[in-house]
Design a binder for these strands. Structure first.
Length: 225
DNA sequence: TTGTGTTTTACGACCTCC
DNA sequence: GGAGGTCGTAAAACACAA
């Protein structure tokens, strides 16, 4: 519990008001300007160790600068209210402030900060979700790449096998023609096979889409629905 | 006890909406 | 123009390791 000692009494939290905050700012030398377009200017604050002109100033400024931390009960009520509605219209702000014994400005600031925390949390959650999806996609990519390697090897083996068969056929044909008086070349012309080039960009031809491949595609497609 | 990192409170500057 | 929003940040309060 945040406590503050004033005289002989101990207060659970200070009773600094918004107007008192403004007084502190004026003491700190932050005039509100001449009415022209406001110039972006960082508000100067009094640091813990800064000097003052007299002891009374030190005591009063110290008291005013003390933060008013909300109690657990006030926090619960504010959280409950925030759950219902993140925005805070004027009437509601006054009502909450009255019920909790807080300054309306304090309630407004609390909601502003609460919204900021909520937004940060949402961003973190969204980031975690996207990262998880990204990791899943990388895993899938790796899996597909290994599939391509395997299939490429199989294709090469098949091409070699066909090539051997083709050469054997040509050989047998020429042997038959030399031992026979009849020419059969026209009937046994060498077969020319034309293979599509292996595409490493995953443009897998339809005839290579086996059940496993199709199941994988369904799985990956499902991720993007 | 003290140094340091994190959370909370508060505010200035600026923007949007009515 | 005023009210209320976001954004960035200062400073107090708090937590905790060394």
């Amino acid at each position: 519990m945040d406590q503050m000692v004033l005289g002989s009494q101990v207060y659970p939290y200070t009773t600094q008001t918004h107007s008192q905050c403004i007084i502190v700012n004026q003491i700190d030398g932050a005039p509100s300007g001449d009415g022209s377009k406001p110039v972006k200017r960082r508000r100067k604050r009094r640091s813990k160790g800064s000097s003052a002109t007299n002891e009374d100033d030190v005591a009063s400024i110290g008291a005013l600068l003390r933060k008013r931390k909300v109690t657990d009960e006030q926090m619960n009520m504010l959280e409950y209210s925030f759950e219902n509605e993140h925005k805070l219209e004027s009437g509601r702000k006054e009502k909450i402030a009255r019920e909790l014994g807080l300054d309306p400005r304090q309630v407004a600031v609390w909601f502003q900060n609460r919204r900021a925390r909520w937004k940060n949390k949402k961003l973190e959650e969204e980031y975690a979700k996207l990262k998880s999806q990204h990791d899943t996609v990388l895993l899938g990519q790796s899996h597909l790449e290994s599939q391509v390697l395997i299939l490429t090897e199989q294709l090469t083996e098949a091409q070699n096998e066909i090539q051997k068969l083709s050469e054997r056929l040509v050989q047998e044909t020429s042997t038959n023609s030399s031992s026979s008086s009849l020419s059969v070349e026209a009937n046994y012309a060498p077969i020319e096979f034309e293979f599509a080039p292996v595409d490493t960009n995953y443009n897998i031809p339809f005839y290579m889409m086996d059940n496993n491949y199709l199941q994988n595609m369904e799985y990956w497609d499902g991720l993007y629905v």
